[in-house]
Design a binder for these strands. Structure first.
Lengths: 135, 135
DNA sequence: GCTTGACCTTACCATGATGGGAAGGTGCAG
DNA sequence: CTGCACCTTCCCATCATGGTAAGGTCAAGC
């Protein structure tokens, strides 16, 4: 099948399929006489694997490792699990960062009247006008 | 003061200060005879504002708006609050996405033995081998 | 056979925010 | 005068993805 159909079947854009080939994530596709790339069942399977891994937030380099492990009959599930848990830790780090931002902003927004007047604790905080401790 | 000291005082790298100038986020700095950029109290204050906004995850375009509101004596705090709540909504969206990834991966990792054998539900799931409903 | 339209090809540019490095100018202290 | 720390501009890289342009291929319809 042509690249467009492979894209449709896997949810990976034709653009990205070519890109993955160019960076060596997938092997170079067979070519027809027309020079069109030709994909088979196996390629579609691999692209589906990649799309699912991307949807779970794995980086291209991590997917490279996952593909290698997928094809390695003598792999240890421990290796897959370790890679996965490393990624989970990274996700947790990002979630914590974003959550802290959100909580700070929510707190500031709650303290903001949101009316027609200019006074605003959000702007004050950004400006570095930290509220002074009373004394 | 020179750009390096402004960078040290604000936590914004000299590289980024020049970049912010080039994209018009901050006005062009004054130059000394040496062609070195020259910064004052006001510039440092503005860069601190930008850094704090960046630390809260605001995009450059949002910071552009925040700086405008900061300098606008006739602003409504409602405008600042609306911009902030829009950003909070975006943070919530990202947090939800990452959390869903993490939960899925944690679930799969819990089901993975993590031993020397190849069998692995993580790989199986990526490969599209959905567990069949029993019948 | 010729046209049309859908598909494919490569190549280049853009995103957003940041860092790295090269090649060269400035200025001060020894 | 030399060395060093600082500055300047310019170009390139990241990461994953999309857009566009210029052109080749192929099947269907006339």
């Amino acid at each position: 099948m042509q690249i467009g159909e492979a894209a449709r079947l896997t949810g990976v854009s034709a653009k990205m399929i070519r890109h993955y080939e160019s960076i060596g994530l997938i092997p170079s596709a067979d070519r027809r006489d027309s020079n069109y790339r030709d994909y088979g069942h196996h390629d579609v399977h691999r692209l589906g694997f990649i799309r699912r891994a991307r949807n779970l937030g794995f980086s291209i380099d991590e997917i490279r490792d996952l593909l290698r492990l997928w094809g390695d009959q003598s792999r240890s599930s421990a290796d897959v699990k370790a890679l996965t848990l490393g990624h989970v830790a990274e996700l947790d780090r990002k979630i914590a960062l974003l959550t802290e931002m959100r909580d700070t902003l929510t707190h500031l927004a709650n303290a903001c009247d949101g009316n027609h007047r200019p006074h605003c604790p959000i702007i004050q905080s950004l400006a570095g006008d930290e509220p002074h401790a009373h004394h």
